Simulated scan of single mutants.
Amino acid sequence: MLKPKMLADMLQAEMPFKYYVNEFPSGAPDASAWVRLTGGYPPSDWSPRKQPSMQIVVRGPEKEAVQIEQLAYDLHQHLHQRREFYAGTTLIRRCTADQSGPLYVGRDENDRLLYSLNFTLVVMSE
């Protein structure tokens, strides 16, 4: 079963940064990201196919605005249209971005920039 920790660990190995699961813990560095599963589509009645969706939120301070935005675009490029790869023990058949690029969603309560990336995944149940 695909879990957010598997996705965060995969991203950490492939695109080093500080990734958390589901939300930012208190004390997390300004430049960090979280990964969560966000629902997706109903599972198939006829096969083990599932289509969960995933959200990644990248944040960073104003002084690192260029680098944070670039990371968001790099993550988008790295994941969009990717096929046949593993997150932990789960084979992800396909990953497709839900938008044409990262979405700037404003600033948090500590004035850090926020970018959201959303993807739909195709996986086969284990």
Rank of each mutant, 00 (worst) to 15 (best):
L7H: 00
A13T: 04
E14S: 07
F17Y: 15
K18N: 11
F24S: 06
G27V: 03
A28K: 02
A28G: 02
P29W: 05
D30S: 14
A31L: 07
A33V: 06
W34S: 01
V35M: 00
L37F: 08
T38M: 09
G39K: 08
Y41L: 15
Y41N: 13
P42E: 13
P43M: 10
W46Q: 10
P48V: 10
Q51M: 14
Q51G: 01
P52Y: 05
M54C: 15
M54P: 01
Q55N: 04
Q55M: 14
V58D: 02
G60Q: 07
A65G: 03
V66C: 01
Q67A: 15
I68E: 03
Q70V: 02
Q70T: 12
L71C: 08
Y73A: 09
D74M: 08
L75T: 05
Q77M: 09
L79G: 02
L79F: 11
H80V: 03
Q81P: 00
Y86K: 09
Y86D: 02
T89G: 12
L91A: 11
L91T: 08
T96P: 00
T96Q: 14
T96W: 04
D98H: 00
G101V: 01
G101S: 13
L103C: 01
L103I: 02
Y104Q: 07
Y104D: 12
V105F: 04
R107S: 01
R107W: 09
E109D: 15
N110L: 15
D111H: 12
L117R: 03
L117F: 06
N118T: 12
L121E: 02
L121N: 04
M124E: 14
M124W: 07
E126H: 09
